[in-house]
């Protein structure tokens, strides 16, 4: 035996249930974030798009405020965002550690990321179709729900698929504040104990998960785009 690489025998009878439990925790954090952050991000993205100059809810003040806030939050690396949000997390969740504290930080991060993705996809809609809806007597809210969202649905699904993977990435960092999950499991049981088998198993699980979601997203987007 040479160097620092030790051969560790993995007790899979003990580790497998832990892997499954942590997979469950990751899925819990990711799904809750995707649902809440996804909705908030959708609302924020739609507001960013519609309050822009010349658009259906044109409002210079609202647009500029939202735009600046998004630009401030988005570039903050997630691990620093978790720390920055500490006091707010304490006020909202009641604690700064654990899965729920991690979810709060993930929702904040995801919301602002999704807002830009939604906005960017809405920008690609032909303004002529919005004009046609206005000419038919439709108001701004009807245009948002019966035109903007359906017209951009395919790209939006792909955008959300992309975001899902980014959230899985975020969830791996959740271990820092005791959020547990697959990332934490790989660090604690794999990396820290020189057990490459565990690390490798976690990587395989995450890759399979991401592949499944990407496949599902592509399939749904293709249905929405009818291609």
């Amino acid at each position: 035996m040479s160097g620092i690489v030790h051969t560790v025998t993995t007790d899979w009878g003990q580790m497998f249930p832990l892997l499954v439990e942590n997979l469950g925790l990751t899925l819990y954090m990711v799904v809750v974030t995707l649902i809440i952050g996804g909705l908030l991000g959708l609302v924020l993205g739609i507001l960013l798009y519609t309050t822009r100059r010349g658009n259906i809810l044109q409002n210079v003040v609202v647009f500029n405020v939202l735009n600046v806030v998004v630009n401030i939050v988005r570039p903050i690396p997630f691990i620093i965002l978790i720390a920055t949000l500490g006091p707010l997390t304490l006020a909202v969740v009641g604690t700064t550690i654990g899965s729920n504290a991690a979810i709060f930080a993930m929702i904040v991060g995801a919301t602002f990321g999704i807002a830009r993705i939604v906005e960017q996809n809405l920008v690609t809609i032909d303004p002529g179709t919005i004009e046609a809806a206005r000419a038919a007597g439709a108001g701004p809210w009807r245009i948002i729900f019966t035109l903007l969202v359906p017209e951009a649905l395919g790209p939006l699904i792909l955008g959300y698929t992309f975001v899902f993977i980014a959230i899985v990435d975020m969830s791996a960092i959740a271990g820092v504040i005791g959020g547990r999950g697959l990332g934490d499991f790989a660090i604690q049981y794999g990396y820290a104990r020189f057990n490459w088998e565990i690390t490798f198993a976690v990587v395989v699980v995450i890759v399979v998960l991401v592949q499944l979601v990407q496949f599902l997203g592509n399939w749904l987007a293709r249905k929405a785009l009818r291609r």
């Binding site: 179709t129 046609a132 809806a133 035109l147 359906p150």
Partner: peptide, 14 residues
């Protein structure tokens, strides 16, 4: 009042 357009402006999702 009906309106028609140069680029038709149909809703692609419908």
């Amino acid at each position: 009042i009906g309106m028609i357009f140069q680029q038709f402006n149909l809703f692609q999702s419908r």
